[in-house]
Design a binder for these strands. Structure first.
Lengths: 200, 200
DNA sequence: TTCAATAAATAAACAGTGTTTAGTAACTAA
DNA sequence: TTAGTTACTAAACACTGTTTATTTATTGAA
C-alpha cells in the first residue's frame, strides 16, 4: 500500500514543519508569547490546520519537550568519552551547566515550565537516560574509591538538585544582580567542594 | 488635611481589597488562570477600575510577591528561637521545605514564576532578610566549629541551591512518580549527609 | 471520463484574555 | 450654586486557544 504510506509520511512532514516553526518561535520569543496563529502564519497555513496535526498546544509542547530531552542527553553523553569515572563526573557537571546556560529555553521546557498536567501517568520527569548516566557514574566512583557509607540515590539527587537549583535560579533571573562571571566561579567552587567531601 | 488623608487611606483599602482577592484566586487557581476580569468580579467592580490602582497585571504580581516574601521570612525566622547555630541550621532546612510544600503558589511566586522582566534594577531575588538569615547562621556554625577552609558564600549557595532545586522539581511535578514519603526521607537523608560533611 | 467518497484546508465564530478610551456620575472646594 | 476633580464603568481594541461548518482538492471505482 504505497499510497497510504506516502500519506503517512506526508503527515509526518507536516508535523515536523509545525514543530520546527514552533521550536524556532519558542527559542526566540518564549513559550507564552507563541500563539497557534503565529505558528500557522510561519508555516503559511490557517490556525485550524495546526489542530489537524496536534490535539492542542500542550501536544506541541510535549513533542518539543521530547526533542529537548534528546538534545540534552546527546550533550551530556559527550562525557562518555572520558574513561575515568571521577573526571567524567566533573565533566557532567560542567556540561549540565553549559547546556542550561546556552539553551535556557530547552532547559525551561524540560524542568521548569509548568506543562498542563494532562499527563499524570507518563514517565516525564528527568529523562531516564540522563538520570541513569549520572547515577551510574556516581556508582562507579563509589565502587572505585570503595565508598560504602553513602547512598547512590541520595548523592545523585544532591548533585542534580543543586545543579538544577542553581541553573533554574539563574534562568528565572533570581540571581540577576550577581555578575555571570562570579556565578560561574561560584558553581565551580561548590562543585569542587562537593567533589572533595563526597568523592575522594 | 483630613480629607486627602482619608482619600489616601481609602485608596489603600481598595488596593488591599484587590490584592486580597488576587491572592485568594492565585492560591486556588494559579497565576495564569486568574484574569483581571475575575479579580474585578470578586471585588464587584469593573475590570477598568483595577487599572486605577495597579498599572497592570505585573504590578499586582509584584505586590503579591512582596507579601509572599514577608510570609516566607516570618516562617524561616521561627528558627531564631533556637540558640544553637547547628540545630538552627537544621531547622531552617526543614522550615524551608515545609514552606515550599505547604505554600507552593507562594514559592512559585517568589522563585520560579517568570515575572515579566520590567524590574532589571530592583533587588528582587531571594529576599535579603532570608538570605542573610541563612548565611549568618552558616557563618556562626563555621566560627564555632572553627571551620576555616570553606567559603561561607559557597556553603550558602550550596544549601539554598540544593533546597531550591529539590523543592522546585517537586512543585513543577518533575518528580511526580516518586511518592511524597520517599521524597521527604530523601531530603532529610541528604540534609544529614551535607551536615556531616560540611558542618562538623 | 465521470462521479461519489474521502481527505485536507480554511473562514468564521465562540469564549476568553490584558489593556485603553471615552464618557458618566458623584463628590469637593470656592 | 457652580466649576473642577475624582471614581467608576461600558464599550472597544487587539489579541488568545479552540471548534464548527463549509469549501476545495484528491482519490478509487464504475
Amino acid at each position: 500500500m504505497g499510497i497510504t504510506e506516502r500519506k503517512e509520511s506526508d503527515k509526518e512532514v507536516m508535523r515536523k514543519k509545525i514543530l520546527n516553526s514552533a521550536m524556532k518561535l519558542f527559542l526566540s520569543e518564549g513559550y507564552d508569547k507563541v500563539s497557534i496563529r503565529k505558528i500557522a502564519d510561519a508555516i503559511e497555513y490557517s490556525p485550524a490546520t495546526v489542530y489537524l496535526y496536534f490535539k492542542d498546544k500542550t501536544a506541541i509542547f510535549n513533542a518539543l519537550q521530547k526533542i529537548a530531552f534528546d538534545k540534552f542527553y546527546d550533550t551530556l553523553a559527550e562525557c562518555l568519552k572520558i574513561k575515568d569515572a571521577k573526571k567524567r563526573l566533573d565533566e557532567m557537571g560542567e556540561l549540565y551547566m553549559k547546556f542550561a546556560m546556552e539553551n535556557p529555553e530547552y532547559y525551561d521546557l524540560m524542568f521548569i515550565m509548568s506543562a498542563p498536567i494532562d499527563r499524570e501517568k507518563e514517565t516525564c520527569f528527568m529523562d531516564d537516560r540522563a538520570f541513569n548516566l549520572l547515577s551510574g557514574t556516581i556508582e562507579e566512583v563509589f565502587k572505585k574509591k570503595e565508598i560504602k557509607n553513602i547512598d547512590v540515590e541520595a548523592a545523585t539527587f544532591l548533585l542534580w538538585g543543586f545543579s538544577h537549583g542553581f541553573a533554574s535560579l539563574i534562568i528565572r533571573k533570581r540571581l540577576a544582580m550577581i555578575p555571570d562571571e562570579h556565578l560561574k566561579g561560584l558553581f565551580q567552587k561548590i562543585s569542587r567542594m562537593l567533589d572533595k567531601k563526597f568523592f575522594q
